[in-house]
Amino acid sequence: MPLDHTARGVYPIAPTPFHADGRIDFDSIDRMTDFYREVGSTGMTVLGVMGEAPKLDQAEALEIATRFIRRAGGLPVIVGVSAPGFAAMRGLARAAMDKGAAGVMIAPPNTLRTDDQIATYYRQAAEAVGEDVPFVIQDFPQTFSVVMTPAVIRRIVQESPSCVMLKHEDWPGLEKISTLRGFQADGSMRPISILCGNGGLFLDFEVERGADGAMTGYAFPDMLCDVVRLQAEGQRDAAHDLFDAHLPLLRYEQQQGPTGLAVRKYVMAKRGIIASDAQRKPGAALTAKARSEVEYLLARVARKDPRAGKLR
């Protein structure tokens, strides 16, 4: 089913698994997709920032997206299609939708500075991929250097009917969520889904501010699913207690660039979700000291969440 504004829950950002020699590990894609479904994910997102998308050619990107979509068995898959030009963006977006994607995610180029430039870019991007393709705004100023005010997000939503979701990764961003939900309440912006990123660092309060869930890639997506579920059930203290137990590891994983991805892949490999923590070059691997720190943090998490103790 096409993505729409009612989407909620957890859409893990899937890393792209590789073999040590840089080949795509399709068996691990299957295993990871099965895991996401089994732990309660309501969808998934592929070829995002932590999916190493810039290291793939267009054929590989489509092959990976197709593998996830087919294995997902009807679970909605959002495909990152950000590209320097609209021709490449359109090509991947249309091909992914033809394969069964639920929608696409579009990040802004780092050259945008004014509200007019941002709104114009997204209006043109929507036209390029096709106005029948539901799309997600990726608002991640720490990485893309593009600052989107609530007003410009409202403008994009109002000008582009195919915009159905915001991936909210501003930091600090709690007030932005409240402002956007206020726009909906006063009728100045139509409803959209808001899923949050940043590794889930603020998920405990983001859902309380009106976010519909998470779209991020922490190595324990099952914890994120539990936090969103507990909040929806009104079990606020239980949600915060679980989140707090994971926060030191979650923070450590949130290191910028390839180091954070190295932590995530290392833990996911230890959990048996993927076969290897390899990144495609240029990439990074954890030092012996970093691995020992991760092991220490996992042991601490395991005191409160036994899933952290069930590792290879």
Rank of each mutant, 00 (worst) to 15 (best):
G182Y: 04
F183M: 09
G187F: 02
M189F: 02
M189E: 03
R190I: 00
R190L: 00
I194M: 04
C196F: 03
C196G: 13
C196H: 04
N198C: 15
N198S: 15
L201F: 12
F202N: 15
F202M: 14
L203E: 14
D204E: 15
F205W: 12
F205R: 14
E208S: 15
E208V: 05
R209P: 02
R209W: 04
G210A: 12
D212R: 04
G213T: 08
A214Y: 08
A214N: 08
T216V: 02
G217Q: 11
Y218N: 12
A219Y: 10
F220R: 05
F220C: 05
P221D: 03
M223Y: 08
M223T: 10
L224E: 12
D226F: 01
V227K: 05
V227I: 13
V227Q: 03
R229G: 06
L230A: 06
Q231P: 01
A232D: 07
A232H: 11
A232L: 02
G234Y: 03
G234D: 02
Q235T: 00
D237W: 10
D237F: 13
A238L: 01
A238M: 00
D241N: 02
D241F: 00
F243C: 02
A245V: 14
A245G: 13
A245N: 08
A245D: 11
P248I: 00
L250Q: 10
R251K: 12
E253N: 13
E253M: 05
E253H: 03
Q254L: 06
G257H: 13
A262P: 13
A262S: 15
V263G: 08
R264N: 12
Y266R: 04
V267G: 12
K270F: 04
K270W: 09
G272K: 04
G272V: 06
